[in-house]
């Protein structure tokens, strides 16, 4: 029968063995992590962005590398998903993007009216640089591509459809809508949109979505007439 001293030896021996193994693996991991995380590409902007991330407890809502609070989206590959311009516009006034829905704190340091254009632009650029750097970390395949999507798997990706799109469309609209099998998955895909809606309707819709359909999740973006024209013209080609 097991004696108390044998039990003690089992505890101390097992702990020591596993402890040593853990320390050795830690040394090897620490040696590999700079390369796996592209530490060379960690510019001053990235580090400042990391500090903004920490100082404001962004992972108290979001997750990054899957770590955080599951209340707001996973941001590991957000730059790839939304694009830099979309994120910059979003940070300035998050609620205008999702009116009446789950809220993000509006931070003064992103608002040119409060901290000045230069400072706001710098903070946005730092944040985006940090997120872009995180997106390039070798995460052993996280987050995995959705594997139950039938539609997306069968639709051919056709990058030519994006040719001729105005810059505003590529930077903002594309973050939520798909064209030619690429783009965001928040709003409906825009392929064939000209067959479904009249030109005038599209113009009114984009200019003020809430006026056309109260309660819609489509945000209203400030844009001049020329940009609006260009986007509507482009939609006619789809």
């Amino acid at each position: 029968m097991l004696t108390k001293s044998q039990a003690k030896a089992f505890f101390l021996g097992g702990t020591a063995l596993c402890g040593v193994a853990f320390l050795l693996l830690t040394l090897d991991t620490l040696a590999q992590m700079p390369a796996r995380s592209n530490q060379d590409a960690m510019s001053e902007e990235v580090v400042r962005g990391h500090m903004i991330w920490n100082k404001n407890n962004c992972m108290g809502c979001h997750t990054i590398l899957g770590e955080g609070a599951y209340y707001a989206p996973e941001l590991t590959q957000v730059v790839e998903r939304r694009g830099k311009e979309w994120i910059a516009a979003f940070l300035e006034d998050p609620e205008s993007f999702y009116p009446g829905r789950r809220k993000m704190i509006k931070y003064d340091f992103y608002d040119p009216a409060i901290v000045g254009a230069e400072e706001a632009a710098r903070n946005k650029a730092d944040t985006i640089a940090f997120l872009e750097w995180v997106g390039n970390i070798d995460t052993n395949g996280f987050p995995a591509e959705p594997d139950l999507v039938q539609g997306a798997a069968t639709q051919e990706i056709d990058p030519t459809k994006l040719e001729g799109a105005p810059e505003m469309f590529r930077n903002i609209c594309f973050g939520c809508h798909q064209v030619g099998g690429q783009g965001g998955n928040v709003g409906p895909a825009l392929d064939g949109v000209s067959e479904r809606f009249e030109e005038d309707y599209l113009r009114q819709w984009i200019a003020d979505p809430q006026a056309v359909k109260p309660g819609t999740t489509m945000p209203k973006f400030p844009m001049d007439e020329a940009t609006l024209d260009a986007i509507v013209q482009y939609l006619q080609t789809l």
Partner: peptide, 18 residues
Amino acid sequence: FLSGILGTGHHYYFTGTP
């Protein structure tokens, strides 16, 4: 301790670790 120490590994799947 036999399971828990090296079990820390389940936090090191997708965070830039080998």
